[in-house]
Amino acid sequence: MNPHGICVDLNDNIFVCDHSNHRIQIFGPQGEYITQLKADSPTDIKIDFKTLDIIACGEESGAFIF
């Protein structure tokens, strides 16, 4: 619910900040669900392509590095 930031990895997997569900959802290139990561009200997400770290920020609660 209320999705915000998105990003894609090297393989076009799509990361969506599912803000109101407090999670980051990960979908395949065709939109098929892969998995999800818990995060408090995530709003934006980026991938550090050197380390493949997933960096997300939250509306009220700082930021996360996965």
């Binding site: 930031g5 090297l10 998995t35 997300a56 920020c57 509306e59 009220e60 930021a63």
Partner: peptide, 30 residues
């Protein structure tokens, strides 16, 4: 390539320590 299923917890969290701290972060974009 990374196996996303294996990620359980964030490695680091930051910007959430103290409400009065200048480093506190409420962000909509990174």
């Amino acid at each position: 390539q990374r196996d996303y299923d294996e990620i359980k917890e964030p490695k680091w969290t930051f910007g959430n320590e103290d409400e009065n701290n200048d480093e506190l972060l409420n962000s909509y974009g990174i």
